[in-house]
Structure formats: C-alpha cells, structure tokens
Amino acid sequence: MNDGNYNDACSRITLRVNGAAKQLDVSPWTTLLDALREQLHLTGTKKGCDHGQCGACTVLVDGRRSNSCLSLAIMRDGAEVTTIEGLAEGQALHPLQQAFIDHDAFQCGYCTPGQICSAVGLIREGRARTPDEIRELMSGNICRCGAYPQIVAAIEQAMGHEEGR
C-alpha cells in the first residue's frame, strides 16, 4: 500500500453470504444494505430508515448483529454475512422463524427479518435471561405494527424458556 493508492472507482470484493462466496463490484460509498438488496437481490434485508434508527436492516456480520445500512460494503470485504434468507435449512425453518409464526410476532412483516436476525444475535450473545433483558437488548429493532409482546414471547420460545414458565 502507498498513500496514493486511493480507490474511487468500483472495487471487486468478496463476501461470504449465507455460506456462499459472492464477488461483487462496489463503489466506496455502497452500503452493505444496498449491495445485498440491489446487487444480490437479497431483498429480505430491509431498508426502513437507512440511518441506524430502526434496525430493519439488521444482518449478522461474522456472527454479530449489525446495521447493514451503516456498513460500507467495501469495508466488509472477506466477511461472513448471514441474512434472513440464510437462516432456514432447506424447508426446515430456523427455530426463531417458526416461533415468530407460532406467536404471530409480526403483522406487515417489514421489520421481521431484522427482528429475527437481531434475535439470533441476541441469543448468541447470551446476555438476555429475563423478558426485561430481552426487551432492552431488542430495542434497536422498531416494529411499527407493535408486535413487541409477541416477539418477546417468540424469542423466549426459541431460547427454550417456554417450558419453565
């Protein structure tokens, strides 16, 4: 690298998206969200505010939940990205996806992929044990339809808390 080695044209990057390596040509200013939606046509990841204020764009980057709208794709070169499209295994839904259906944890469905990806991250982080902790640590995902109580119930189900209640 030298100091003059700036790049303002398209760059070829590689993302491992839902387990498959994808090569993309991105501009420096292309966000991970736009790359997923516009280039890979993975429109399950939603654009709700484009400013990190709603959580609809939440995906897992190297296993951690992140706002894809505030990530520049070029900075994620080489990263492992999991989107809502990558959670089910064939026809078998991820336990959280099934729990969301069981508890009617959505209405319009637009925030749902972000809620589910966020919940996957939440469970992996292992910091939420009580419903109040789930509420606090899921507060980065806004649901305007107001399905919050059902979402918390779905997450508890997926955590395996259901039996203990």
């Binding site: 303002d8 200013w29 520049l72 900075m75």
Partner: peptide
C-alpha cells in the same frame, strides 16, 4: 462520492489524513 483507502499501518493512515483536510478516518462508521 469519495475515495477509499484501506490503511495497513498507523503511520500510513495518519499521513493520508494529515495531507488532506477533507479526509476522514472510518472505523465503525
């Protein structure tokens, strides 16, 4: 629109921004 530079060492990063008042470091973004 902006140009993008991935810095491999601290010195290069500092030199790049020091030379250009409209350049910015980016981390979390």
């Amino acid at each position: 629109r902006f140009a993008y530079l991935r810095a491999d060492d601290v010195g290069a990063a500092v030199r790049a921004v020091a030379a250009d008042p409209s350049a910015r470091f980016i981390a979390g973004g």
